[in-house]
């Protein structure tokens, strides 16, 4: 805002006053008697609350009424159940993780097996080709053998 705010000086003044008063307050409460009084106050208040609690529980037990304590105890059971579910959930995470890891490992092994099978298949093809070539060679040998035998027999006939 470009215009002058009529409350600005009021603010500055109160800031100064606040600072001064707080300094004064700070110094004035820095004394031991006040600490002793506070101590007594805390003690008295605690005693009073303890008494009140005791009477409350007593009354409630005579009248057979549940108190806030009973409700709190019931809630504690629920919280325990909640904690157990959390633990279970974390265990499921671990299972999920190990499953994921196992699947990954399995995939890796499967991949290796596939690769190996392919290799074997290739080797197999190669071997069968070689076998075929060998069989052909064998057949040719057989043919040659037959021809040789034929040659052996024929000269006898010629001699006759």
């Amino acid at each position: 805002m470009s215009e002058m705010n009529p409350y600005d000086s009021f603010r500055q003044l109160s800031e100064m006053l606040e600072k001064g008063l707080n300094g004064l307050l700070f110094q004035s409460i820095n004394n031991n008697p006040l600490i002793q009084v506070t101590k007594l106050g805390i003690e008295a208040n605690s005693r009073y609350i303890e008494l009140l609690k005791r009477n409350r529980e007593l009354m409630a037990s005579y009248m057979n009424l549940p108190t806030k304590n009973d409700v709190a105890n019931a809630v504690k059971q629920t919280m325990q159940a909640e904690e157990k579910i959390d633990i279970l959930e974390e265990q499921i995470w671990n299972l999920q993780d190990s499953f994921a890891l196992a699947t990954q490992e399995q995939n890796k092994v499967l991949g290796e097996i596939l690769e190996f099978t392919k290799h074997i298949h290739f080797e197999w093809q190669k071997t069968s080709q070689e076998l075929a070539a060998l069989s052909e060679m064998k057949n040719e040998f057989e043919e040659m053998k037959k021809l040789l035998q034929k040659d052996k027999e024929e000269p006898v006939l010629v001699a006759k």
Binding site: N5, R11, S14, E15, E18, L21, N22
Partner: peptide, 12 residues
């Protein structure tokens, strides 16, 4: 302590 700052700021 004395904390009139926020209130004064609001008025301002």
């Amino acid at each position: 302590g004395f904390n009139v700052g926020p209130t004064v700021n609001l008025v301002t």
